[in-house]
């Protein structure tokens, strides 16, 4: 659905651009290609890395790590699993819902979902290329720590403790 919107907006803008100035549009497309070609090696590497990680860390392994653990140790483990994996949302959220049904706590799931989205260990090569090593590392560390605050509050509010 959101992909359709993205394509409709892009094609419309491209068309308007073409009507107003052919040359500028060509230049824009050249820039788009250059930017894409520039980062393509990192993209491809990240995609392969995600494949390897998800083949090893499948939902069963994840649930065995997160599902049975409780307390802060379980939260830390969940946060680590979320940080190193990169799972598309439509897989991640149903998995998280399933884990909740199987007895995982809200705090653990909160940590997992939060680091999954904010912390990107496998996407770090792309981030480093644009932001440099130092900023990429500090951002991910801060996001990781922040996820514990998120987990704690979600545990209180959604867990109803």
């Amino acid at each position: 659905m959101s992909n359709y919107i993205l394509y409709i907006i892009t094609v419309t803008l491209l068309f308007v651009s073409y009507l107003r100035d052919k040359q500028k549009t060509n230049k824009a497309l050249m820039k788009a290609w250059k930017a894409f070609e520039n980062i393509l090696p990192e993209f491809l590497g990240v995609i392969m890395l995600v494949g390897i990680l998800l083949a090893i860390l499948n939902p069963q392994v994840i649930s065995s790590v997160i599902g049975t653990q409780s307390g802060w140790f379980g939260v830390i483990l969940s946060a680590v699993v979320g940080a190193v994996t990169l799972i598309p949302g439509f897989v991640a959220f149903p998995t998280a819902a399933m884990l909740l049904k199987n007895g995982a706590g809200y705090m653990q799931i909160g940590a997992f979902v939060s680091t999954l989205m904010m912390v990107g260990v496998v996407t770090a090569p792309v981030e480093i290329k644009y932001f440099g090593k130092r900023l990429a590392i500090v951002r991910n560390v801060l996001a990781f720590l922040f996820s514990f605050i998120v987990a704690y509050i979600i545990g209180k509010v959604a867990g109803g403790i």
């Binding site: 651009s17 500028k24 549009t25 497309l29 820039k31 788009a32 290609w33």
Partner: peptide, 10 residues
């Protein structure tokens, strides 16, 4: 990336 190119130019 196409949107990026357009943004960059326009």
């Amino acid at each position: 990336f196409v949107l990026l190119g357009l943004l960059d130019i326009w």
